[in-house]
Design a protein around this nucleic acid. Structure first.
Length: 565
RNA sequence: CUGGGUGUGGCGCAGUUUGGUAGCGUGCUUGAAUGGGGUUCAAGAGGUCGCAGGUUCAAUUCCUGUCACCCAGACCA
């Protein structure tokens, strides 16, 4: 490719709307252009890299016996009505009507389409197990897309669906897929990826893992133990919390004027936050009843855990109108709780001598002991895990990290196959419902993460497996070295993807563009070196830099390509 | 959806307070010089100032509405 012909302006300045490294470089380097909120066009450099990532994905999916298929982007509502998701999924599902007035939707995931296809084609146990996958556009009307390709509305995803005749078989395959995922990420140049246990969310199912690229710019929080193997999504993380022994004392009312939050309370009474009890008020979505979650003062309620426990979504109380509670002074002792559901976090179990609200404006109670003073049937885990709490497996301190989810895998069970009436005939001639797994990777997000993981101050440092071009030739004194450059370009182009900067610009401009395009190997031709029959070869990461005879350029380039990642 | 911010040549911005018909940098085109980290000089092209109404002799500027985009949160396979 001649750089003079490459479509895609490169910018010197950071675009105003970009903050994340990958987003900045993809805009500055002419990789992507935003069309609308969360909707992008890809230019040649990005698309070339996407194709390479997809090739790796295909190889690994084929390697675990996947069969590639292609489902439609536009699906009829009936299919999603069969699974129940047409109604259950919210407005992130883009619905519309065709000319005949029929309800249609844009696929945001393809379980229904996969079952639709598979149920007609796999009626005998002899076909099982099997996996079908596609690399296809998805559309999710995200409430808020952001950060370039990290969170978008329209994106390419590899999604795979496996079908099994036993749970054991699903678990075996699940593990094979997990291994294949790591190979995909590592081959794509993403090193800093871990798999963690995750919530199954709207997919349903029993077990799920997320693959997280660890990065401070990530949207998700991850809990992990540095000592043992425990790793988890924040939403399902558990921990062992420290408790301190304390002597029981007489309950005593204290005047705490205007002290409404735990931090103020602890300061006012000169105690630690873990010597208090916090009450957080929520509403149930299903029946709009009030729920009060009690938890030790130093901890926070994990709403997702609470929702799982209650079996419904909850909303934090924001509108105090018509609420018969002393907001800010709610306590578990002597609480008039008719029509209110109470939930107690595990952190309160056995606590003695703690401070809680007195259910009376401007008053708290001292020295409440949970067992002595409160009549609690059940303690549940609704606490958010915090940095420093102990690992339930080994007791070591847990750490919190940020991450970007680049893939996930689910054991779906029979949720979709059953709902959609998929059956096969087993050895005994009986009809059975297959067990499913599903497996996703966001291609564009992976691309962005590869840049996050491989760059310097000037641009991406593409791993050679996914670099848009492997070799970038700069001609610093074009009039003097043009013939030489063209010759090397033609020669190397026979076997490699080569970019030739034939624009005759200043050295600085050429280097800056080469950095943004990130080819692993750069050949620099100049009048000075050409006079000595030499060319310079440098790697994009600047780790190798050498002068070689012009006649050896090809040999040297090949050798250096072997050395770089 | 809630809160905040921004819309002015391809990109980055000034101008708006105090109305008078648009400017800078960069990029682009042409020419010349230069040639190892966005080099220099000269000559050009490019904008109904997001959109719609209103006020006014006159609106990029004031008022109203509306749309889009960005950030934080909510939300999120």
């Amino acid at each position: 490719m001649l750089l003079s012909k490459l479509l895609g302006e490169r910018y010197k300045e950071k675009p105003a709307d970009a903050f994340l490294t990958s987003h900045i470089f993809m805009l500055r380097g002419g990789y992507i252009r935003q069309v609308s909120n969360g909707i992008f066009s890809l230019l040649p450099p990005a698309l070339k890299t996407v194709h390479k990532i997809e090739k790796i994905i295909r190889e690994e999916m084929d390697g675990i016996d996947g069969q590639e298929v292609l489902f439609p982007v536009v699906l009829p509502a009936e299919l999603w009505q069969e699974s129940g998701r047409f109604e259950s999924v919210g407005s992130e599902l883009l619905r519309f009507k065709d000319r005949g007035g029929r309800d249609m939707l844009l696929g945001m995931t393809h379980e229904e389409a996969a079952v639709h296809l598979a149920r007609g084609e796999a009626k005998s146990y002899l076909k099982y197990p099997f996996m079908i996958y596609q690399i296809q556009t998805k559309f999710r009307d995200e409430p808020r897309s952001r950060a370039g390709l990290i969170r978008v509305r329209e994106f390419t995803m590899k999604d795979a669906y496996s079908f099994h005749i036993s749970q054991e078989d699903l678990e075996l395959y699940y593990q094979r897929c997990l291994d294949a995922y790591f190979r995909i990420f590592h081959r794509s140049g993403l090193k800093n990826v871990i798999s963690i246990l995750s919530d199954t969310g709207m997919m349903g199912g029993q077990k799920a893992h997320e693959f997280m690229y660890l990065s401070d710019d990530g949207e998700d929080s991850i809990i992990y133990c540095e000592n043992c193997d425990y790793k988890s999504n924040m939403d399902v993380a558990v921990s062992h919390i420290h408790k301190e022994e304390s002597q029981e004392q007489e309950i005593q009312e204290v005047h705490t004027p205007g002290i409404k939050d735990i931090a103020e309370l602890a300061k006012f009474l000169n105690i630690k936050e873990d010597q208090t009890m916090k009450a957080t008020v929520f509403f149930r979505k299903d029946n709009e009843k009030t729920v009060i979650a009690f938890i030790r003062g130093d901890l926070q309620v994990n709403e997702l855990k609470l929702e799982k426990h209650l079996g419904t979504e909850v909303f934090p109380l924001t509108d105090y109108e018509g609420i018969d509670l002393a907001i800010g002074f709610v306590g578990a002792y002597n609480l008039n709780a008719k029509n209110i559901q109470l939930v107690y976090d595990r952190s309160l179990e056995g606590e003695r001598n703690i401070v809680c609200g007195a259910n009376k404006k401007d008053y708290h109670l001292r020295a409440v002991s949970v067992e002595r003073d409160l009549n609690i049937d059940e303690f549940v885990d609704i606490a958010r895990v915090n940095h420093g709490e102990s690992c339930i497996h080994c007791g070591s301190p847990l750490k919190v990290s940020r991450g970007i989810e680049v893939g996930n895998i689910f054991q779906l069970g029979t949720k979709y196959s059953k709902a959609m009436g998929m059956e096969y005939m087993d050895e005994d001639g009986k009809l059975q419902t297959p067990i499913m797994g599903c497996y996703g990777i966001g291609v564009g997000r992976l691309l962005a993460c590869v840049i996050e993981d491989n760059h310097d101050d000037y641009g991406p440092i593409w791993p050679k497996a996914v670099a848009p071009w492997l070799i970038h030739i700069c001609m610093l004194n074009k009039s003097e070295v043009n013939d030489l450059g063209q010759k090397i370009y033609e020669e190397l182009s026979k076997d490699f993807e080569v970019l030739l900067d034939d624009r005759g610009m200043g050295a600085g401009a050429q280097f800056a563009d080469a950095d943004l395009l990130g080819a692993p190997v750069r050949i620099i031709l100049s009048k000075r070196n050409a006079a000595n029959g030499q060319a310079e070869i440098v790697t994009r990461d600047k780790s190798i830099k050498k002068l070689v005879p012009v006649s050896d350029v090809r040999k040297e380039v090949e050798a250096i390509l072997e050395l770089v990642n």
